[in-house]
Amino acid sequence: MKSYSYYPGCSSEATATGLDLSAKAIAKPLDMELIELEGWTCCGSTPYSSLDRLEAVVLAARNLALAEKTGLDLVTPCSSCFITLYGANLQLKENPQLMRQVGEALAVANLEYRGNVRVRHLTEALVIDVTPEEIASKIQDGLNGLKVAPYYGCQLVRPDYGFDDPESPQSLDSLVTSLGGEAVPYPLKNRCCGGSLIISEESLALGLIRKLLDNATENGAQCITTPCPLCQINLDAYQSRVNSKFKTSFNLPVLFVTQLIGLALGIDGKSLGLDKNIVSPGPVLEHVSRVKQEVKSGA
């Protein structure tokens, strides 16, 4: 069993509860131990660093310092936390003066950071450490041909931190396939959903979300899967806004990739937080369980 220091991210306590629940639920069957970082605080994400770049690095540094004490890789399921923590880590290592100033600040809380933490996205850990083959070997009935649009969003693959191709990523496709699902072609798989600007510039973001929903529907997807909390809430909770603004009738469930893995592993919907999805994942559950019943009655 491989252990990781786990950073859930602020949204895990509210809009992305399903991500946190499902990440924890799939860890054990996949031989991962996610040890939640005690006393973690905000990573210093884009809104913070857009108002004060250096202060945002201090926020990240506090979490990195906590993680360094554990001696484990720091894993987060949130794409935005991932690039924030990763980028701040890089900046601290490259800029000794900043590292010194941050060090002085951390000292008031008896913390120090030496730059030894490896920041990773949970999806990366699933693909590189656990591997899709290993996941496939733990699955019995799986998703059996469920057509899934793998939606990477932006910050899992960009700026390029070397885990997957920023233009034509494949990691989610391989995960979906390993679960017994069918990853449909999804040309817009790494395009933007508008992120947090859904709040301040709604019409810009709704336009982007519409294109993503359109593209998935055109390609016959029965659901979309994504690792990112912002992508999930934009595509899921704001789907009704898209429908009323553009007079469309999308009804496409949007599952976290960890929820999808959990389903394939046979974990019940409630433990995966599927009851928190706004567009009902009913049809997806039905597809998966119908297949299971067929398999059972056939056997």
């Binding site: 941050v102 002085e104 600040a105 008031v108 928190k276």
Partner: peptide, 24 residues
């Protein structure tokens, strides 16, 4: 869908964080 708690959580590291920011 219980995705919007109305009250914030009391976070353990909260005071530490503000002291670190002030010092920085």
């Amino acid at each position: 869908h219980k995705r919007m708690p109305l009250l914030p959580k009391k976070v353990k590291g909260r005071e530490d964080l503000s002291r670190i920011i002030q010092r920085f």
